[in-house]
């Protein structure tokens, strides 16, 4: 999990800078990083609030983006099974793209739920602490970072590292391509609604190709 923490540094800093740019004070910025605890949602919320989007739209967009946690939660349920119920409910708070990716990799490699659960718990807590520190640093020191460094490019790169292993089958690739094309094609829509619609279209595209493949095999 340590490499994931190090890779989070520029991402957290960019999030802190974004919160400052959206006009949040320090408490508000730290509220986002401690409570929402999702870089993607924080960046989107900051951008949308900065452009004056209605609160309902910000909540809707961030929540649709958060639907991927449902999938992670379903996949993590067997991993966290050995832990007491009270624990696993609380530990669910630490579920992020990075913690999920690292824990599942451990689980797939060893098939040992206990070991993966401990790895997830320790790594998840470390990530949470790292996240607060880097967000605070970004908020406080953001304007001294030269624009020529293009630090904000670290954000899509962090997600790219998660997207690549998700390309497991033809339907998965199709879902990503449909979503990517749709988000650009619908760019004219206001308030980043293109993101929500493109995500849904991508999911439908993946399902359609999967069903078509099953029908083809059944013939």
């Amino acid at each position: 999990m340590l490499p994931a923490c190090v890779a989070m540094v520029p991402f957290g800093v960019v999030c802190g800078v974004g919160a400052a740019a959206a006009g949040a004070n320090f408490i508000g910025a730290m509220g986002m990083s401690t409570i929402i605890f999702s870089g993607a949602a924080q960046i989107l919320a900051s951008q949308l609030l900065a452009t004056g989007a209605p609160v309902a739209v910000v909540i809707l967009t961030c929540s649709v983006l958060g639907l991927r946690f449902l999938m992670y939660s379903a996949a993590m349920a067997p991993v966290l099974q050995p832990l007491p119920r009270r624990w696993s409910g609380a530990l669910a708070f630490l579920l992020t793209d990075q913690a999920f990716a690292a824990a599942i990799r451990k689980f797939d490699a060893h098939g040992d739920a206990r070991r993966a659960a401990l790895h997830y718990t320790g790594g998840g807590m470390a990530l949470w602490c790292f996240w607060q520190a880097t967000n605070a640093a970004g908020f406080l020191a953001g304007n001294v970072i030269p624009a020529a460094w293009s630090l904000e490019f670290a954000v899509p790169l962090c997600f790219l590292a998660l997207l690549a292993p998700a390309m497991r089958s033809v339907p998965h690739v199709f879902a990503a391509v449909v979503a990517g094309v749709a988000v650009l094609a619908l760019d004219a829509l206001p308030m980043r609604l293109n993101l929500v619609i493109a995500g849904v279209l991508g999911i439908l595209g993946g399902i359609a190709i999967e069903l078509a493949g099953e029908r083809w095999k059944a013939r």
Partner: peptide, 19 residues
């Protein structure tokens, strides 16, 4: 379950491409 399988691929792609 079928829909959830494609959520990360679709949402991450929709998020990354504009950036």
């Amino acid at each position: 379950a079928r829909a959830l399988r494609y959520v990360p691929a679709a949402m991450l792609s929709a998020l990354i491409v504009p950036m």
